[in-house]
C-alpha cells in the first residue's frame, strides 16, 4: 500500500492475526498509521461541520471554522510558548524540543480558548451576526499581529519550529490524546445534528427564523460555542488546517443538491473525512522519507475546488445577498 514503509496485504493479515514476525509493521500500523487515520477523520469531519454551521449562521459562503479568529488564538498560544521558552534557553535548543507535544497542545488550546471566550462574550451582547463576524476577524488579525511581533524578536530556530506547526500535521497525535479528541468531536457532531432544525430555519435569514419560532440569540450562541470548541480542540492537536472547513460544505451542497442540514451535516462529515484521508495520502507522494505539509495539500486541493464551485455556479455570487 502507500507510504514510506510498504505494507502488502499479507503483511496486514499477519499483523492483524498477531504474528511475531511482523512486530515492526505492527508498531507502525497501531501506533502511527491508525491514530493518524483516525485523526484525519476527526479533523475532516469536525472542521467541515464547523464550516457548514458558520456559513449558515453568517449566511456567507466565505465563512469557515476559522472566521472567529480561533486559529489565530491557537497560533498566538503556540507562538508565545515556543518563542518565549527559547528566549530563556538562549536559543540552545529549539522551543519545540523543550516543550514537547503536550505543551504545544495546551498552549494552542489556551490561545484558542481565550479568543473563543472573547467572541462568546461579544456574541452575547451584540444583536446581529455580521458584527460578530467582523469582530471575530478583528480578534484574529490582532492575534496574528502579535504573532508577527513575536516572530520578529525571536531567534530563527524558534521561528522555524513555529512555522512547522503552522503547516499543520495530523501525525503524532497519540492514543491518549485521541482519548480526549474522539469524544469531543463526536459530542460536537452530535450537537450539530441536534441543531439541524433551527439551522435549516436560519437559511431563510434571522428574521424569518425568529418568525418561525426560533430563539435566534440562543441558537447563535450555541453554534458559536460549538464551533469554537471543535476548531479550538482540533487546531490545538494538529495545527491550523486550511480550506477543508470552507470547501467541504460547498462540495456537499453541490453533490447532494440540497441545503437541508439533515442531509448536509452527514454529507460534510463523510466528504470531509474522505478528503482529509486522500490529502494525507497525497502528502506521501514525494518518496524517500519526505512528506509534504498537509496544509499545503489541502489548500492546493481546496483552492481549485472553491474556484470550480464559483465558476460552475454563477448564482453563488448573488446567492447570499439579503
Amino acid at each position: 500500500m502507500f507510504g514510506s514503509v510498504s505494507f502488502t496485504w499479507e503483511d496486514l493479515g499477519q499483523v492483524l492475526s498477531g504474528s511475531q514476525e511482523t512486530e515492526n509493521l505492527a508498531f507502525i500500523l497501531w501506533k502511527i498509521r491508525l491514530p493518524k487515520a483516525l485523526t484525519g477523520i476527526l479533523v475532516g469531519a469536525g472542521l467541515s461541520v464547523s464550516g457548514l454551521m458558520m456559513q449558515t449562521l453568517f449566511r456567507n459562503p466565505l465563512a469557515g471554522p476559522y472566521v472567529l479568529g480561533i486559529s489565530s488564538g491557537a497560533s498566538l498560544g503556540v507562538a508565545i510558548l515556543m518563542m518565549a521558552s527559547s528566549l530563556f534557553t538562549a536559543g540552545a535548543t529549539s522551543g519545540i524540543l523543550l516543550v514537547g507535544h503536550w505543551g504545544m497542545v495546551l498552549a494552542a488550546m489556551f490561545g484558542a480558548l481565550l479568543v473563543m471566550l472573547l467572541v462568546i462574550l461579544v456574541s452575547m451582547r451584540i444583536a446581529d451576526s455580521v458584527s460578530i463576524l467582523i469582530i471575530g476577524i478583528m480578534f484574529g488579525s490582532a492575534a496574528g499581529a502579535l504573532v508577527s511581533v513575536l516572530q520578529y524578536f525571536s531567534d530563527p530556530d524558534s521561528v522555524h519550529s513555529f512555522l512547522v506547526w503552522t503547516f499543520g500535521s495530523i501525525a503524532g497525535v497519540s492514543w491518549s490524546q485521541l482519548g480526549i479528541l474522539v469524544p469531543l468531536v463526536i459530542a460536537g457532531l452530535f450537537a450539530a445534528v441536534v441543531l439541524q432544525k433551527p439551522l435549516n430555519a436560519f437559511l431563510l435569514g434571522e428574521n424569518q427564523a425568529r418568525a418561525l419560532g426560533v430563539n435566534v440569540k440562543r441558537i447563535r450562541l450555541l453554534v458559536v460555542i460549538l464551533t469554537s470548541l471543535l476548531t479550538g480542540a482540533l487546531t490545538a492537536f494538529t495545527g491550523p488546517i486550511a480550506f477543508v472547513g470552507i470547501a467541504v460544505p460547498h462540495l456537499a451542497r453541490m453533490l447532494f443538491r440540497t441545503s437541508d442540514h439533515r442531509l448536509i451535516i452527514p454529507a460534510s462529515v463523510l466528504i470531509g473525512s474522505l478528503l482529509l484521508l486522500v490529502c494525507d495520502i497525497l502528502t506521501q507522494v514525494p518518496t524517500g522519507g519526505q512528506v509534504l505539509p498537509i496544509n499545503s495539500v489541502t489548500a492546493l486541493f481546496g483552492a481549485p475546488v472553491v474556484i470550480w464551485v464559483i465558476m460552475s455556479n454563477r448564482k453563488t455570487r448573488n446567492a447570499w445577498k439579503s
Binding site: 435569514g205 424569518q208 418568525a211 440540497t258 441545503s259 455556479n313 445577498k321 439579503s322
Partner: peptide, 17 residues
C-alpha cells in the same frame, strides 16, 4: 409563531431549496 405568520421583504436566496 403558532398565532401569527410573517412574510418579509428580505429575498431568500438559498441554493438548492
Amino acid at each position: 409563531a403558532r398565532a401569527l405568520s410573517l412574510v418579509l421583504t428580505d429575498r431568500i436566496e438559498v441554493q438548492h431549496l
